[in-house]
Write a protein that binds this DNA or RNA. Sequence first.
DNA 1: GGTACATAATTGACACGTCAATCAGTTGGC
DNA 2: GCCAACTGATTGACGTGTCAATTATGTACC
Lengths: 163, 163
Amino acid sequence: MTGSTPEGRRKRHLPTADELRLWRDYIETAEILRSELASRLQSESSLSTGDYGVLLALSEARERRMRSSELAAAIGWERSRLSHHLGRMERRGLIRREECVTDSRGAEVVLTPTGADAFRSASIPHLRAIRELFVDALTPEQLVAAGEVAATLRRHLGSPSGA
Amino acid sequence: MTGSTPEGRRKRHLPTADELRLWRDYIETAEILRSELASRLQSESSLSTGDYGVLLALSEARERRMRSSELAAAIGWERSRLSHHLGRMERRGLIRREECVTDSRGAEVVLTPTGADAFRSASIPHLRAIRELFVDALTPEQLVAAGEVAATLRRHLGSPSGA
DNA sequence: GGTACATAATTGACACGTCAATCAGTTGGC
DNA sequence: GCCAACTGATTGACGTGTCAATTATGTACC
């Protein structure tokens, strides 16, 4: 759209104004969506999306308990982040930490009844919100396209990159 | 893709497993990208993306100064968020706050030479990173598709929604 | 001109994230 | 058995974000 020597800048140059606008649209839209979902979840359930992710992983775990590092891997968080977050969740009674029998360095994170209840009542409204704000907003073709874009971007991130 | 009674669930139901996966891909990819860009900017320039946005807006402003609330509107931040952020940036000498002549409630935010330098040297590498991680990763068609997805999602967010 | 209301901006409290440092316990080599 | 290196997890410091309350002006209306 910007035109101007489309071959003159193959790689090695800066994004055009149009490209930059697309980038901003992309990243800001995702951010708005994230924040809208978070705020609905918060007001409906007093849970953050972080809480939700932790509770979801624990709900699906055998005996509703997991080693702390397993949990971190499952939800893709750094250990330190999880540790801080679990501290806050423990204060609110959503989870409990127990010493690990097989490795006394380790900790096991256990879902409490309170936590299980909170997750149960948050779950349906949260999924509905995802459907309403994301899935229902897009045509099936757009959904597929969004998936391909995401997959392509991730593939590109993982590779050594053309730098 | 999941198939199974495509008409049986028009609205009012929960996302399918496939739809949920698409949602997660979408939101997590954006998050990874955001965080990669932020970390590059940080290590190359000691600026956060927040700093960058503020400096960009000020760079483009007449006399490199703006009323605080104008600035907030320009970058789409809440006033309180900006206030906290400006406090941190002022401590680092990137901006300065001056009293406003025409309205003594107001504050004017001024770009310092230090801030201008920081922005100048951050700018090119940052734009290059955007090109490398986002623009160059996608085909032109995918870029357009990403733009349409973003626009559609925002339009949907703005409307009273089908709830 | 004074009271009521709106507006500009800041503040405090607290949740969240990252990084570097720390602590405790395990493991491998000798 | 013992020391070094590794690993699981926590901690502290600090930047970032949100919400509610506050401070200080401006403005309108009587």
